[in-house]
Design a protein around this nucleic acid. Structure first.
Lengths: 223, 223
DNA sequence: TCCAGTTTCAAACGTTCGTTTGAAATGTAC
DNA sequence: GTACATTTCAAACGAACGTTTGAAACTGGA
C-alpha cells in the first residue's frame, strides 16, 4: 500500500470519529481499527495523535481559507460598504464546496471546528489566529464597514456569539437533525441549516444596541 | 469532618475543574487533590464520577429551574403576549442570583452547561428534557406567542442557535474576557456579557425569514 | 470507657491510553 | 537476484484512569 493511501485511510477514519466523539474521546485504536491499518501506523506516518488532529483540520482549512481570503479581498476592493448579509454569505459557497472534495465534507469540517473550539482549550483558536489571522481580520473589517454604528468591542462580542451559534449547532447537528425530522417532518441537511442561519446571524450582529434604561426596566424587580 | 463538609469540598473543587477543563479531561485525582480529600472519597460519597457530575449540575439546576418555572407561569397567565426581549430577560435574574449562592456561581453554572452540552454526547440534553421538560415547554410557548410569524420548526432552530451562542460563549468565556480586556480595555464580567447578549438574541430569534430569491441571489455565482 | 457506625486512608486492582520497539514483509533500483 | 529503503506488524512499555478493598482513624451515645 502506498504512503498516500495509508495516510488518507487514517485521516478519513479519524475525521469521522473525531467529529462524532471529539478528539480526546477517540482513541488511536478506534481510528486504526476503522481505517483497517496497524495501530503503529498513526505514529509512523504522522508522528503523534496531536499531529494527526492538526493534519485532519489542515486538510480542510487549506481549501477554505484561501477561497475566503479571495472573496474578502474582492469585497474590500469595492468602493462602497457591503451589506452585512452579503458579507456573511461569502462563507456559504466555500463551505458547501467541501462537499465536492469529500462526501459530507461540509458537515464534517464544521463539526471538527466545533470540537476543536470546545475540546482542547484554546488550541484551535490559537492555531487559526496564527495561520489565518489576516483572513479573519479582513472579515472583521468588512463587518465593521457594514455596521458603522457598532464599535469594535461590540462587534468582537457579536462575532463570537455567532461563532458559538455555528460551532455549537454543527457539533450537535446530528442530534438536532434527528429531533427536527421527528418533530417537524422536515428533511434537514447542512444546506437548509445554513439557509436558516443567515438571517439569524445577520439580525443578531446588526441588532440595535440596548439602551441602559431599557435593560434596567427589564431586570428590575418592580416590573 | 462531617459528611456534608466533605461532599461540599469535593463538589466545589469538581465544578471549577469541570468548568475549566471539561468532564472527561478532569480526573478524580485532580479533584480530590484540590479538595484535599482522599481519592476514594468521591466513590464513597457519590458512588461514581458520573454521579458526581450529575450532583454538581443538579446543585444549580435545582435552584434555577423552579425560579424560571414561576416566572414563565406568571407571563403565561397574562392576557396579552409578552415582548420577546422580556421573555428572554426572565433568565437574567435567576442566573445572576447564582452569584449569591456561591462566588462566580453564574459563570460556573453556564460553563458547566456548555461542557455538558458539548462534552458528553447528548447526556445533558436528555437529562434536562426529562427532568425539566415542562419548564422548557413553557418557555418555548412564550417565544411562540411573542413571534407569531414564525412556525414551530423555525423557532426550534433559532432557540438552538441561541443555546449555542450562550453555551459556547460561556464555555470559552475566560479566553474571551482576556482578549476583550487586552484589546478594548473594558472590564468584562458575566453581567456585561449578558447585557450584550439580550439584544443579539432578541434580534436573531425574531429576524425576518429570508425570501428564497434573496438567498439565491446571495449564493449565486453570477453575482 | 467502651462499642457500633461512619468516614478516611494507603494501596492495589484491572483497563485503557499513546507511544515505542525490533523483526517481518513489501517495494524499489541496479 | 541482490541490496537497500520503506512500510507493516504483533507485542510490549510506562503512565494514567475509575474503582475497589480492608484496615485504621474518628465519631457520638450508652
Amino acid at each position: 500500500m502506498s504512503r498516500q493511501q495509508t495516510q488518507q485511510k487514517i485521516m478519513d477514519a479519524a475525521e469521522s470519529l473525531f467529529a462524532e466523539t471529539g478528539f480526546n474521546d477517540t482513541s488511536l485504536r478506534q481510528i486504526t481499527s476503522q481505517a483497517d491499518v496497524n495501530l503503529a501506523a498513526v505514529n509512523y506516518h504522522f508522528g503523534s495523535k496531536k499531529a494527526l488532529i492538526q493534519a485532519v483540520l489542515q486538510r480542510y482549512l487549506q481549501v477554505v481559507m484561501p477561497r475566503l481570503n479571495d472573496e474578502f479581498e474582492q469585497l474590500l476592493a469595492r468602493q462602497s460598504a457591503t451589506q452585512l448579509m452579503d458579507v456573511l454569505a461569502v462563507f456559504v459557497r466555500p463551505l458547501l464546496e467541501l462537499n465536492q472534495v469529500k462526501p459530507q465534507g461540509t458537515t464534517l469540517f464544521l463539526q471538527l471546528l466545533g470540537r476543536g473550539y470546545t475540546d482542547a482549550q484554546g488550541h484551535l483558536r490559537r492555531f487559526i489566529s496564527q495561520h489565518y489571522g489576516s483572513v479573519l481580520n479582513k472579515f472583521v473589517l468588512l463587518v465593521q464597514q457594514s455596521c458603522p454604528r457598532l464599535d469594535a468591542a461590540e462587534i468582537f462580542w457579536r462575532l463570537h456569539f455567532s461563532l458559538g451559534t455555528i460551532v455549537f449547532t454543527m457539533a450537535s447537528s446530528e442530534a438536532l437533525f434527528d429531533i427536527a425530522e421527528a418533530d417537524f417532518h422536515e428533511q434537514s441537511d447542512i444546506e437548509s441549516v445554513i439557509r436558516r442561519l443567515l438571517p439569524y446571524l445577520t439580525a443578531g450582529i446588526s441588532a440595535d444596541i440596548i439602551r441602559p434604561e431599557q435593560l434596567d426596566t427589564l431586570t428590575d424587580a418592580s416590573n
